[in-house]
Design a protein around this nucleic acid. Structure first.
Lengths: 157, 157
DNA sequence: TGTGAAACATGGCTTTT
DNA sequence: AAAAGCCATGTTTCACA
């Protein structure tokens, strides 16, 4: 991971479909070199894939929420079972398995408030071992581009 | 948005870099049709972009956390200011602006626990109008592929 | 279906250890 | 001396009209 790799990762996060030539020219290197580096990044597992990003509102799911779930007791079987169950539900966008007060934070995207209520009542609260559920509406969701950790201690010197 | 569009969106979320020919063959349509459809999906804003996904652990940031922040008072200026400030920090991966008990949930990826502490103390807790901060470690983070809302009422009939 | 452009493979050259 | 990285070129495949 040198400076060039970092720049490649950054560029490909911004636009994962630009041609190899564009990318090479942008960074001032030869296309063949560029191709090799990108391949190496994938092989090493730094870049894990390329994905289309979709606008969920355009797909008829304009309402997003975060549902915090606490399990009791927190036995492995219950935790994994619930995770797998929620993963398969079509309303689910992402799941965080966390420590702290909650055990799961589920990100969902739904059509309207009624579907959100149904999701919570039918799929979450009804499940076994659920001790607590709290729902927060998502007003905005910003995802940033992520780079490598910069070496050398504190980040605001 | 018909069945074909839904299938295209699904496929391109799975692999955003497959060639138009592959994609067309997989769905049993002509490459020209496929190209047109995908272009239309982008133009309509259903597909908003293509991005490389990176493994943050491979970038030297193996520790992820969710930081819940409550502001008081919740004036517009403070909310937007804090959001913009946090967005620019290199540790930040994503931000949810939410309703409910909390106002923000910040997803961060850091090198180690020390850097997490520094982030909370130096960048979050020190900020103006911060009423409460809670940190949860992320054990696992699953992102699912998202499709269009299926018409016709309840989803578990 | 055809044309221009892109991805990819290979071999030679330069730099680093 | 060995290894790794970079680049130029030829071939195959693709996007696009």
């Amino acid at each position: 991971m040198d400076e060039l790799d970092a720049a490649l990762v950054e560029e490909l996060q911004r636009d994962g479909r630009q041609t190899n030539r564009e990318l090479a020219e942008r960074l001032g290197i030869a296309p063949s070199t560029c191709l090799e580096r990108v391949r190496a990044l994938r092989k090493r597992g730094v870049i894990t894939g390329f994905h289309a990003e979709v606008d969920l509102a355009q797909l008829g799911r304009p309402l997003q929420a975060l549902i915090s779930v606490r399990l009791q007791p927190k036995v492995r079987e219950a935790v994994e079972g619930f995770r797998e169950y929620v993963t398969e539900l079509p309303e689910t966008v992402a799941i965080f398995v966390v420590s702290g007060g909650d055990d799961f934070i589920i990100q969902v995207a739904v059509r309207d408030a009624g579907q959100l209520r149904d999701f919570v009542l039918d799929h979450v609260a009804r499940h076994r071992n659920i001790a607590d559920v709290r729902t927060s509406l998502v007003y905005d969701h910003i995802r940033t581009s992520t780079g490598p950790e910069r070496r050398g201690g504190r980040d605001a010197p």
